[in-house]
Design a protein around this nucleic acid. Structure first.
Length: 273
DNA sequence: ATGTCTTATTGTATAAGA
């Protein structure tokens, strides 16, 4: 079966539920992973998703900040809510998708943005971000399939990881080296997390590393398209067991122009599972 | 880099986070 996964930092699911519905009708992903829902669970707009066939929903939200959700047409065989760095701040949920074959595990992540100053000694938010990356690398390493497991493990991780790892994941590598999201320290920890599970960077399977690729443009630019000072903060990662199943990818850049747009646009990938 | 958007509140202006 064909499986399309989308990830989107929605920056308030209630404010932008109209845009979510429009996106789902347009792209019809099988699974949508949202971050920054900013919505306590009791207020989550379930009916909008139910009406469009997303009958399987795992949500973990809170007041004001953060919040993640997995909305799926595909049933779950298991779900988990994870607490990271000793906090309960709604940043990691996990579901097993019932694809008929081995279930595919999907992690939906909202990694801390990290504040403005890239120094963990003076900026607690940056320290939290680094700690989150270290914890994820360790957690994935513990789940890495043993060499004797020849078929490997089918796992997909998506979300707003708040790091643009490659030179051409930002508009100016040189000018952003000291800007949080592209500092060498963050990029190194991102790399450690990638190595922990041998993750494949799915969009970069299709777009060469010397081409610009972004999923986020700041609200602070008056004309985002003209200045085009973007960053690739939103990611889709897949394990080697899914390597031959990867079919296509798409970043919905034009959605940055939609009425009352999020500052992030959806990233999609299709697998033949 | 600048400077915008969202949420919440000792609220109709301000602060915090991104």
């Amino acid at each position: 079966m064909s499986l399309t996964i989308a990830t989107w930092n929605i920056n308030s699911v209630r404010l932008r539920i109209g845009n979510v519905e429009r996106f789902l009708k347009l792209r019809k992903p099988d699974v949508l992973c949202l971050q920054e829902t900013k919505c306590p669970d009791e207020f989550f707009p379930h009916q909008a998703f139910e009406a469009l066939g997303y009958k399987h929903r795992l949500i973990q939200g809170m007041k004001s900040y953060n919040g993640v959700a997995i909305l799926s047409k595909v049933p779950f065989t298991a779900t988990k809510i994870h607490h990271r760095c000793g906090k309960e701040d709604c940043r990691h949920i996990e579901a097993a998708l019932d694809t008929g074959n081995d279930p595919i595990l999907i992690d939906n992540l909202y990694i801390p943005a990290g504040g403005d100053i890239p120094d963990p000694g003076v900026n607690d938010k940056f320290a939290h971000k680094l700690e989150f990356y270290r914890e994820m690398a360790e957690w994935f390493a513990e789940r890495r399939p043993k060499p004797r497991m020849r078929k490997g493990l089918r796992r997909i991780a998506v979300g707003d990881l708040n790091v643009a790892p490659l030179e051409h994941d930002v508009w100016s590598h040189k000018q952003l080296l000291k800007i949080v999201s592209h500092t060498p320290m963050e990029v190194e920890l991102f790399g450690n997390m990638m190595a922990a599970m041998d993750w494949i960077d799915v969009p970069r399977r299709f777009v060469p590393e010397n081409e610009k690729l972004y999923s986020w443009w700041s609200y602070r630019n008056t004309d985002w398209r003209k200045s085009n000072r973007g960053r690739r903060l939103d990611h889709i990662l897949a394990t080697p067991a899914l390597s031959s199943a990867i079919r296509s990818h798409h970043i919905d850049v034009d959605m940055r122009d939609w009425e009352q747009a999020s500052d992030h646009v959806p990233v999609l990938a299709t697998f033949d599972v």
